[in-house]
Amino acid sequence: MNKQFGFHEGDSFLHILNPLAKFLSLIFIMIGILIYPSLTLTIFFLLLTLIGFRVAQVPLELSHNRVRFLLVFSVLLLVLQVMVISNGNVIIYLVPVLNGTGPFFPITDYGISVGLVFATRFLLIVLSSMLFVSVTDPTLLAHSLARSGVPYRYSFALIISLRFLPLFDAESDMVRMAQRARGITYDVRSIHGILASIRYTFYPLLVSALSRVDTLSMSMDGRGFGYDTHRTYVRFAKWRKRDSFLMILSLGFLILCVLFSFNILPFPLILF
């Protein structure tokens, strides 16, 4: 798993919130932002997310490749919107009138505002998801799902998936080294090399992963997994008042967005 953006242990306010409350709040806010695309609200939540990184003491280094990529990508989104939208007040033409032809590629205020909405929305979705991942223990999330009514047999699948990640990582290295020891090298710059890579690395990894299905499932069955409909946990996240408060806030936000979106409630700061 990516160490830079995986779970960071801590005891901040964001860490101690119930994982399920965080997950549902994130979904509600995302849906709200999608159905009511307001630049003001998006920037507000983006700032809140950045403060969240600070509060949770999770580093968000701008020099890191992934963060740099996100910024470049959001700029590209902005540029694309500005280029394809010709409506609104024209600020400038990229190609002015030349010998009676043109002008072409108008940059309009509407294009810029739409571009900003989409670029900030992208940043908000990705950064808030990163914050959620950073402050949420995936095992506790699975347990919270089980305690919320999802049968634990299914929520346990998430735990298996996440637990196997480091194993696959190690196995992948082992397969590559084993093939190299056999004298097999491949050049992934050609189609033939890619196919060879699939045959000699991907297939062994897949077989190795699937060969664990039988042993693991037999082992689980042998320990009585699924015997009872209820399960107890050593570690679990309690649902507290603050979680209920968070849910009320995020659900309230979603309802407000629906009301704004259908013009049932006026909102003076809307972009469009």
């Binding site: 047999r153 299914y154 346990f156 699948a157 998430l158 298996i160 998936s161 996440l162 196997f164 990640l165 696959f168 990582d169 990894l205 897949l206 992963a209 699937l210 664990r212 299905v213 039988d214 693991l216 499932s217 037999m218 689980m220 069955d221 997994f225 699924g226």
Partner: peptide, 18 residues
């Protein structure tokens, strides 16, 4: 779902996700 089916989905989902 049987246990081996859950495990199959979990393992393929894990490998696929990564």
């Amino acid at each position: 779902l049987k246990t081996y089916e859950i495990v199959t989905i979990a393992i393929l989902g894990s490998l696929g996700g990564a």
